[in-house]
């Protein structure tokens, strides 16, 4: 059981107990010790309730951030499966779609990911961010080269081949993306 669940159980437990004591006090009001008992219980529940609220807000933020990262990764998978990246695409010069990392960037700066709990995931996101930047940079270079005036059909074909080679950066990026999607905690 995690911290948030323990604190919630304690809070609601205390409140429930206070309620039960309050009801008993109502029917048998002659015992003057009911009052401090109910008061103390509600006071403690009020205090722990603050922690419950904080922990819940944190968890919600983390879920939101992770969901947006997952959405972005799915979007990137779709981009990598784009027709322009297909091995069957004609070897013509073209502008390629770029991978996006804004949700990952936001996730990393938001502080919503736990220091200890998500340490491994944070490391992976940092590496993914680098991969995407280098991948996009390679697309830039490919476009600059293929859109130059002097390129021959053979050179265009060489770019097509280089992109779809088994050990190309494209394949490595796709593999990294699949791995990252697998590593994301279930939401």
């Amino acid at each position: 059981m995690n911290r948030r669940a323990v604190v919630s159980v304690v809070t609601y437990g205390l409140l429930a107990l206070a309620f039960v004591l309050g009801v008993i006090w109502f029917f048998w009001p002659e015992n003057s010790r009911w009052e401090p008992a109910v008061n103390s219980l509600t006071l403690v529940a009020g205090l722990t309730g603050i922690f419950v609220e904080r922990l819940t807000a944190e968890a919600e933020r983390r879920t939101e951030v992770l969901r947006s990262v997952a959405d972005e990764l799915h979007e990137n998978t779709r981009l990598l499966n784009d027709d322009r990246f297909s091995p069957d695409a004609p070897t013509a010069r073209q502008v390629y779609p770029r991978l996006v990392v804004s949700a990952v960037d936001l996730a990393l700066v938001s502080g919503a990911l736990g220091l200890r709990r998500d340490a491994e995931l944070v490391g992976q996101l940092h590496r993914w961010r680098d991969t995407v930047h280098l991948f996009n940079r390679r697309l830039d270079l490919t476009e600059i080269s293929t859109f130059s005036n002097t390129i021959s059909a053979a050179e265009l074909a060489a770019f097509h081949r280089a992109l779809h080679r088994e050990n190309s950066y494209f394949a490595a990026t796709r593999e990294k993306l699949d791995k990252l999607l697998g590593a994301l905690p279930g939401l």
Binding site: S145, E155, R161, Y169
Partner: peptide
């Protein structure tokens, strides 16, 4: 020959190398 693939490292191969 065009089939050389691996052997002839072109600009493209250099760009897309891992």
């Amino acid at each position: 020959p065009e089939a050389a693939g691996e052997g002839a490292r072109s600009l493209a191969d250099d760009i897309w190398a891992t």
